Simulated assay, not measured.
Amino acid sequence: MRWLSLCIMLLLNIQASFSQNIEGKWLGKITQQPGGYSQLYDLEFDLSQRKNIWGESYAFEGDSIRIRIGLSGYIDKDSIRLNESLGWIREDKVPFTWIPCVKQFYLAYRKEGDFEYLEGRWTGFSKDDSRSPCYPGKVILSRSVEGLNKFLEDHRDSVVITEPLVTASVAAPVLDFTSDFLNTEPKKVTEIIVHQPELQIQLVDYMKVDNDTVSVYLNRNLLAKNIRISKRPALLNFRLDTRIEFHEVLLFAENLGLVPPNTSELILVDGENRHRVMIVSDKEKTAAVYLRYKPKKKS
């Protein structure tokens, strides 16, 4: 009899999970791991639900990025599966060098007091090449602005899933770039004077794509891990510690590709200025680019 009661309770729980209604508008945030175009976007869902789920997603960042894609999906026990469709791209406004991702969402519903949330992760692939995966990330959505603001306040230290680049302290940290790095010798490629603290690195393959993979370090702290170099630029946005004048960017070869050594082209975006640098790393030497921060004097 106890066994029968347990089975009935389990069946009721499964049915309850399937009966969850998520129809309507949701608003929130979507993050992307280092190596993607940006660390954080705004995200909205507009969903309809009967037996299955359909609607559209809308990811945006200011006025420069607006991506609206139709999606469909279903509820599987306590998981919500939603897939954008390549054929349902309704709005595609991104910078010239960017390519939107067609995303798959793996979400769970939960309720805290009066607030309802959809929370989980996403994966995806390039709109132009389904064989090219996007850097994944996390998703948080709420039915209300108040619920979203509460979540962001409660989780303000973990919403963006990237390594912190600057550790706040009163005194500027003392950096040492003279020692070896991960059993390799840092080899200076060039020194660049930069005027903006917010910078972007674009990494693309040099000549032939041969599966080169690198990790990028700023001042010996991990900036992005295992970036596969391809013809599609991998974009890294970061901020310099303005208390320090001299910074080091290391491109560590995780492999040597099909044709050694590990080669790539680095484009450093400093405001309106762009600096192109050819990068060569191997298992003995790690390419080092040094940045000298000199803010422009106010006129």
Rank of each mutant, 00 (worst) to 15 (best):
I67P: 00
D63K: 09
Q104T: 15
F125M: 07
I89A: 07
V94S: 03
F18S: 07
L86T: 15
G35Y: 07
S17A: 12
G62K: 02
A16E: 11
K138F: 12
F105G: 02
K29F: 04
R110P: 00
N13S: 14
W122A: 03
W54Y: 12
S85M: 10
E23F: 03
A16N: 10
C101D: 03
L86C: 10
S72Q: 13
R68A: 07
F60S: 12
Y74W: 08
Q39S: 15
L82A: 07
S19F: 05
G24K: 00
Y135H: 10
L141V: 00
Q39M: 12
E61L: 15
I69V: 14
D128Y: 09
F105M: 07
Q104Y: 06
I75A: 03
S19G: 08
W122I: 05
L141F: 00
F115I: 05
G35S: 06
R121Y: 11
S79E: 13
R110E: 12
G62E: 05
A108Q: 14
K51V: 12
F96D: 14
S64R: 10
Q49N: 01
L47K: 04
Y117V: 04
E91K: 08
F45M: 03
F105N: 04
G28E: 05
R81N: 14
T123H: 04
K25N: 09
Q20V: 15
L40I: 13
D114C: 03
G113R: 00
D42P: 01
I69K: 01
R143K: 14
G62H: 07
D63S: 12
G28K: 02
S57Q: 06
S17G: 01
K77R: 08
Y37H: 07
K25H: 09
R68F: 04
I22K: 01
W26E: 05
Q15S: 15
Y37T: 09
A16V: 02
E61F: 15
P95S: 06
Q33A: 14
T97F: 13
S85E: 13
E61H: 14
V139P: 05
R90L: 14
I65E: 04
R121D: 12
S64A: 13
K138N: 14
V102P: 02
T123N: 10
L82I: 11
K29G: 02
I140C: 02
S126Q: 09
P136S: 09
Q33V: 15
S85N: 13
E119H: 10
N21E: 09
K51Q: 11
Q20K: 13
I14T: 11
I65V: 15
T123V: 11
G62Q: 05
S130H: 08
I67V: 15
D114A: 10
V139L: 04
S85Y: 08
G73V: 05
T123K: 08
L82T: 07
Q104M: 13
S132G: 01
